[in-house]
Design a binder for these strands. Sequence first.
DNA 1: CTGAAAGCGCTTACAG
DNA 2: CTGAAAGCGCTTACAG
Lengths: 345, 345
Amino acid sequence: MVRRPKGPSIKDIAQAVGLSTAAVSYALSGNGRVSIETQENVRRVADAMGFIRNDTAARLRTGESNLLGVIVHDISNPFFAELLSDFEAFCYEAGYLTIVANTKDDLVRQATLIDALVAQNVAGLLISPGHTTSRDMMAGLRRRSKPYVICVRDINDPSADFVGADDETAGYLAARHLIDTGIVEFGFVGGHEGSKTWAGRLQGIRRALGEVGKSIAPQHIIPTSPTNEGGETATKRLLEMNPTCCAAICFNDYVAFGAYAALHLAGRLVGVNYSIVGFDNLPQSSSLLPALTTVDLFPRKIGRHAAATLLEKVRGVGSEPRRYLVEPRLVARHSVAGTLPHLRL
Amino acid sequence: MVRRPKGPSIKDIAQAVGLSTAAVSYALSGNGRVSIETQENVRRVADAMGFIRNDTAARLRTGESNLLGVIVHDISNPFFAELLSDFEAFCYEAGYLTIVANTKDDLVRQATLIDALVAQNVAGLLISPGHTTSRDMMAGLRRRSKPYVICVRDINDPSADFVGADDETAGYLAARHLIDTGIVEFGFVGGHEGSKTWAGRLQGIRRALGEVGKSIAPQHIIPTSPTNEGGETATKRLLEMNPTCCAAICFNDYVAFGAYAALHLAGRLVGVNYSIVGFDNLPQSSSLLPALTTVDLFPRKIGRHAAATLLEKVRGVGSEPRRYLVEPRLVARHSVAGTLPHLRL
DNA sequence: CTGAAAGCGCTTACAG
DNA sequence: CTGAAAGCGCTTACAG
């Protein structure tokens, strides 16, 4: 660490203008008590000297902060990247800056990061907790009544606001779509067994099947990592073990991409004699052949709503902790048999 | 903004332990001058009270900062999301936290953001400048000798380090691959005309063609937005205007996805009677049918290298500004005619 | 309309 | 080994 020439402080400006630092502060903030002419003069000189107010010092004095923290397990995940992008944009408009940090699903790192952000005196925190996070891990935040909202992964913290996707409804919509086209036997492939998201989607699937007096066979449920490769592996297994089954709900669109590959290799035709539904509606899902039918979870909307909720708490608008689930939407395209308008190949 | 109960300060701990704040500070930092027993005692009490040191105050006193700023036009762009993810991880390991901000390619916002991050007293900045950013916009940073590195989009700032992709080589590799399979007539579709990236790739394409005594026809160059839709539009135009042309280099993988859609609609078979090459190697590009041949630009590597470069400057390791271009790599798959191993459908 | 002074929470020379 | 004091760059009651 090297000492570098600092920018000018209000002291330097005060000297240049021949006023006290107090007067300069008042002039710059416009908090009355200084004539318009003085204000303008001070501002002009400050600009000329390249003055940038040290927010950090102001914060120390006033106790107010325009910094927000975001903790997620992986920013490069497109779902979180979109969520974060809209969160940041919303907060920026409201005058707040955003610090982000990746936990990589490491709970120790998560705890360290929470403290590190508190140490930066952030006004509030948005946290997508790592797997198996308990609400005890938020004890430090509660103790100093630092506002925080939990997003995406619920941890049953009754004292915290939660904003996330409605996985149960999402699962229901996917299954319902299949059922509506006459398919009642299908697999659920990919995703980490026992994760909240996975369990929620499966529950929705079960509900939809239950409504028509059916259920999903245990051997049709094949969890794997929620990736391309996971999808390919899981789909291969599903094909081998269940030759009569000709449809699968994939844990997400990546998994669906893998399923396409596996089906191609097996000589099956997606949208013709095999049906696939995904979750997330990634931008490229519409470009697959055939275009992927999927459930949109609206991560950007989650980001904006989380931002609005957090900002309310930061500003001290008191209210009971709330849960807000963004309504998912089925995007019907052509990967479900019977929905392909025409086939040219 | 509401005043909330603050966490304990070293003053509170000093009182609890019966020492001066100075002694507490020394004990906590371990900077000698305090007996081991006292250190342990102070640490125990501090933990019990839930003490978290206010970095912001320490920074004010010492002038050192463990905050870094990142300014990009869009974090939700997967290329930048991956770059940022590795940048953050690298800096975290080194003890730094990362503030991110989106400019949305708005130069006013970019300028505001730079000042806002300086106001937070960041130790350094990583900037992917908006289109038409001139080096004058970095004048404020230079004046206060705030370390910064430019990434991805070059602005010809001789006083700044630059880390980015080697677009010229990337374009060359794509074209070379086509030429090697016997294709010398092809389009270059999608991307904003005149952007550095676009121009770089085109230049590489021209070099490869030049080596075999060919050139690209102006009507084969069709810029559009670098998106799915842009790719579809551009490819349709290319097909209409140039019926004999049966290959295209797409500005990026998104554009390639759109090209697939357009070709499908036109009854062309990618990898059979039409060849496509993209850039970026998105995770899902391998799942297209046929799998997309593309050039990987390694955004994560750019992120890590940018982090290492910035940290060096922050720590005052003096050196001449350097340019570092990450070497791209062709990922040959099956979207180029003659490279498809077998066709089953 | 303006100035002198205190204080936010730390760290670090300066004394002892 | 430890304490009293100054100071980082601001803001804001308190006087005038």
